[in-house]
Amino acid sequence: MSSASFLGRALLPILLAFPMLAPVRAEAAMAPWVASEGGRMRLVALSQPRNGTITALVQIELKDGWKTYWRYPGDAGMAPEFDFSGSTNLRLKSISYPVPDIGHDEAGRFVGYHQPVSFVVELDKPGEAAPSVIDLKALVGMCDAICIPFMAEFKLPLDPAVPEGEEFSALMLAQSALPEKPRADFAVRSLMKSSDGKSFVAEVTIPDEKDVQAEAAASRGVSLGKDPVVTVDGRTARVVIPIRRIEETGTQHQITLLVKAGKRAIEATLALD
Rank of each mutant, 00 (worst) to 15 (best):
P49K: 14
A17F: 00
A35F: 08
A31Q: 02
G65H: 03
M78A: 14
A29Q: 15
R50L: 08
G77F: 09
G38E: 03
D64F: 02
A28Q: 08
L21T: 13
M20R: 15
P19L: 10
D75E: 10
V24S: 12
L12D: 02
G8D: 09
R42A: 03
A56K: 10
A45L: 05
T68L: 11
A26L: 04
F18S: 09
A28E: 07
N51I: 00
L43S: 06
M30Y: 02
F84P: 10
F84N: 04
L57C: 05
D83C: 06
E37Y: 06
R71I: 13
G74S: 09
F18C: 03
Q59R: 13
N51E: 15
Q59G: 02
G39S: 08
P32I: 02
A10H: 00
S5Q: 13
R71A: 13
A10E: 00
G39R: 06
A35I: 00
T68V: 02
R50K: 13
F82Q: 03
R50E: 14
T68E: 10
R71C: 02
M30A: 13
W66N: 07
Q48S: 12
F6E: 12
D64E: 15
G39H: 05
G65Y: 02
G74F: 05
L43H: 08
L12S: 07
F82V: 06
A26G: 14
E61K: 06
L46H: 04
P23Q: 11
P19D: 08
I14S: 13
L15P: 00
A76T: 07
A35L: 03
K67T: 12
A29R: 04
E61I: 07
T53H: 06
A17V: 00
L21I: 07
S47P: 01
A45K: 04
G39W: 04
I14D: 12
P32W: 07
A79L: 06
E61C: 04
V44F: 01
R9E: 13
K67N: 10
F82S: 05
G8N: 11
D64L: 02
A10I: 04
D75I: 10
L46T: 00
D75G: 08
W70N: 09
R40M: 03
N51A: 15
A22C: 00
P80F: 11
I54W: 04
L43P: 13
F84T: 02
T68M: 10
R25G: 03
E37M: 05
P13A: 12
Y69N: 11
A56G: 11
Q48R: 15
P49D: 14
L16H: 05
S47C: 05
D83N: 14
E81W: 01
P80H: 10
L15D: 00
L46C: 04
I14A: 14
A29D: 15
F82M: 15
A35H: 12
L46K: 03
E37W: 06
V24T: 15
R9F: 01
A76V: 04
A10W: 04
M30W: 11
M20V: 08
G8F: 11
V24Y: 00
L15R: 09
V44Y: 01
L43Q: 08
L15M: 13
L11I: 11
A45F: 06
R71W: 06
Q59I: 02
A28R: 11
L57Y: 05
R50Y: 01
N51G: 11
S5E: 14
K63S: 05
V58L: 15
A35C: 01
V24N: 04
